[in-house]
Design a protein around this nucleic acid. Structure first.
Lengths: 343, 343
DNA sequence: TCAAGGAATGTAAACGCTTCCAAATGAACA
DNA sequence: TGTTCATTTGGAAGCGTTTACATTCCTTGA
């Protein structure tokens, strides 16, 4: 109620509660060595004074800051948005706050800079898809800085990571198309420097092999996970003498490009051509026709990653864990039985 | 190259560069009183030692932290995502980092708590759409804490804010429908505790009045900006004896609900009924038929807000500015001339 | 040649906390 | 009653900065 409410510190709380500031600090940190009634008195005083701990000072003095960092490549696609939601929902249950770094933003500076910066801001860090994960994880592991990789790309290192079963997802999707009678299936890859992209490609290939279908290199277009790749690849496919009857894009963004290209060619989905994506971003169920896609549990991945990080923070010596969440084929309206197929 | 690369501080830099740490601090802060050659030497030493300033300590010692906060209600709709992208792109050009707070996450605790927390973490804060802006802005203004409101709701206060011309956007959209020959136009409102929602409703009403069209209360459905409202409202409209021939939803999310409801009623868009949304979220151009909507420059709003905040940070006494960005009608495929209309 | 004054640099104190060690208190036992 | 040991509390040092003030150095003009 004072004119200018000056900042309340542990010293203020201490003098109000008739204890030393050391004791107040102990209360804050749930130290055992405080008499219950003293603790209670201090807590009440903190309440009454609207005391809020200064995390800067906490961290500076060698404690935790109760802030975790999230490093993402960009905010473009909704893909990240889903992951953030998962993280956020986990944060709700904890006492942590979130610091957001986008790598494109700091691409100019070296990765090391970001980390140095992050390291004394946050207690741990969550990493989404840095294109070149080598430096990142190496640096962090060396410094024993707590981190978890999201949608990891399987660098040799043995570090905590949560990902999805990309291989299985791609296999199932391809298999499903084959069940529908499709034999010529175009595939648009993601950035092949990413483990996830490779796994998807392999899943596709394996499904074809399993059904003894020839893997035609002409039907594989190398993309980069960006929407235009879907368009370009599809345009290329449709110019073939023997074009595919179905197209499997390595993510939903590219699938949107595929849809546009198909439409621009005057063909109809799914009547003339079936389309499958990967990720199940929010848009996927909204476009018309609704996109059949492989659901990647993005939100859950974010949630799990946050959980894992908290676990590591709590118990720094826990051994690195690698979690793989199942993907699920979401059958919607962009796929159909091949016309004239007996399948 | 050392085994354990211990943290480099200004003291290390100072001793390496043969100056006192005070001088190093001066270099960091671009203080005039440093001999150019000394400055150069210090800068080179910092470079060589990979020195990175500790922002915790900076802030603690009374300086800035070079971190700004962003307080958003949630991460649901892509609406926020667009805004964040704008902010982020502005951040790229600056030396600031971003702290993300979601209010739902802290709803349990009082708003004051979040602010106390934020205030000593960040230099300034960007606010998106807190449902009850009163407390927030009041508290902040009183403490003279730098902040900018995004997509503001016009509380009486005179505080820095960037918004969009909701009224004009709604007017134009309604006017356009009328030009197409529509006379019975359903309107689904947003949460009417928000200024933006009210402005949109008023724009709609004014357009009708301007064309001497009766404002039928039956054609106004009160929603909350959530997708299901669009569905419910539309279902209700279509059950009317004299149903609307066009529906204007106060945001794109609800428009998606409208589309679903129309489809479920076995009617076609835009042949049987025209639909307009508001916001132009990324999905809008992706759904089929592509949604005609009022483009709200979300990314630009984020960008402007960040700019304003930086400006305030640089010059704390600059007078509060209220920016209103123009909205734009994006005509796509969900609207058409009224059948049998001579318009 | 010397004093005066400004430019450049050094230094102590403070920011709000944690942590470690020392001091005080109290309980249990002989 | 005194001793011992565990529990609880107090207080100093330090985290990496900024800032205000003190000091040193160099110019300049008489």
């Amino acid at each position: 109620m004072n004119k200018i409410s000056k900042k309340i510190t542990i010293v203020d709380v201490a003098s109000e509660a008739q204890v030393s500031f050391g004791t107040v600090s102990r209360v804050i940190n749930n130290d055992i060595h405080v008499k219950p009634e003293t603790r209670e008195r201090v807590l009440q005083t903190m309440e009454r004074l609207n005391y809020v701990v200064n995390r800067q000072a906490q961290k500076l003095a060698g404690g935790r800051s109760n802030v975790i960092g999230l490093l993402v490549p960009d905010l473009g696609t909704g893909y990240i948005g889903e992951i953030i939601r998962g993280i956020d929902s986990e944060l709700t249950l904890s006492d942590y706050d979130l610091m957001l770094y986008t790598t494109h933003r700091t691409a100019s500076k070296e990765a090391g800079y970001v980390f140095s910066l992050a390291q004394d801001m946050v207690d741990g860090i969550l990493l989404v898809l840095p294109r070149n994960p080598v430096d990142y994880t190496g640096t962090l592991a060396k410094k024993k800085f707590p981190f978890v990789l999201i949608d990891h790309q399987g660098t040799g290192e043995n570090c905590p990571a949560v990902g999805a079963s990309n291989w299985q997802g791609a296999f199932n999707a391809t298999d499903y198309l084959i069940q529908l009678g499709h034999k010529r299936i175009g595939f648009i890859t993601g950035s092949l420097d990413l483990g996830a992209a490779i796994d998807r490609l392999e899943g596709y290939k394996t499904a074809l092999r399993t059904h003894h279908i020839h893997i035609d290199p002409v039907l594989i277009f190398e993309g980069t996970f960006e929407q235009p790749d879907g368009y370009t690849g599809t345009a290329q496919f449709l110019d073939l003498k023997s074009p595919p009857t179905a197209i499997f894009a390595s993510n939903d963004c590219m699938a949107m490009g595929v849809i546009d290209a198909v439409r621009d060619h005057g063909m109809k989905i799914p009547d003339d051509i079936s389309v499958i994506g990967f990720d199940d971003i929010p848009q996927a169920s909204l476009v018309r026709p609704a996109l059949t896609t492989v659901q990647q549990p993005l939100e859950q991945m974010g949630r799990m990653a946050a959980q894992m990080l908290f676990e590591i923070l709590k118990n720094p010596d826990s051994k690195p864990d690698r979690i793989q969440l199942p993907t699920q084929l979401m059958i919607r309206d962009s796929t159909a039985k091949l016309k004239g197929s007996s399948g």
